[in-house]
Amino acid sequence: MSENKEKMITVYIMGKAYEVPFGLTIMKAMEYAGYRFIRGSGCRAGFCGACATVYRNKGEYKFQTALACQATAEDGMYLAQLPFVPANRKEYDIAMINPEKNVLSEYYPEINRCVSCNTCTKSCPQELDVMYYIQAAIRGDYGEVSKLSFDCIQCGLCAARCPAEITHYHVAQLARRIYGKYHLQIPEHLLKRIEDIDAGKFDNEIGKLKKMGMKELKEEYTSRTIEKIQRGEVTQ
């Protein structure tokens, strides 16, 4: 560990060489080199999808893709951050949708341009079967799209790499929304909880939280107990 700390590596950020300590994530390596993330960073924990990045390893021809907050910077990496993917996203009212029709093709007809090149799947840092969920979208199979895309964090790398200009992650999100609203059963315990909320059962506790200062809140958060919920059981 202490040896590693001393060890420095060279990375190339937008073409310029920087010495950074070994063992940092790409994001931290760039920050070490003096870059500040105003966009393209969020949770720093691999959940928000804000930090899509493209890089290339020394001696290789291939572009690689990753989440900058997750992938470790290696010696000789060529780095560049993607600030944003200007992807096509449709506005819709989920309540107005006819789930019997293929709404995915209707709102995102360009999915039919897929050539099955598999570039999206290769670029996905979540290792999803992106190509196969777009294929399922073409035939309007909401369940299959939802299943295959469930772990998508919407980083946009698939869309940035797609030769057919498809915005996979927005298609998948629409599919999951339709599937959730029209095809899945509404969980009873959720209905019960909503009822409780509407009846004001938690007003008191929320009120207390709202009045707390930052320090108190933090303490409350770290000392919280996590309830174990049995399947189908409603905890009070």
């Binding site: 050539v115 099955s116 196969y132 030769p163």
Partner: peptide
């Protein structure tokens, strides 16, 4: 066990291998 759209129309261009990926896959 897994399949993708065949492409529905065959590409007739001699240099267009991208549109052959779907059926060949």
């Amino acid at each position: 066990p897994r399949w993708n759209c065949c492409g529905t129309v065959y590409s007739l261009a001699t240099d267009d291998l991208m549109h052959q990926l779907a059926p060949v896959r």
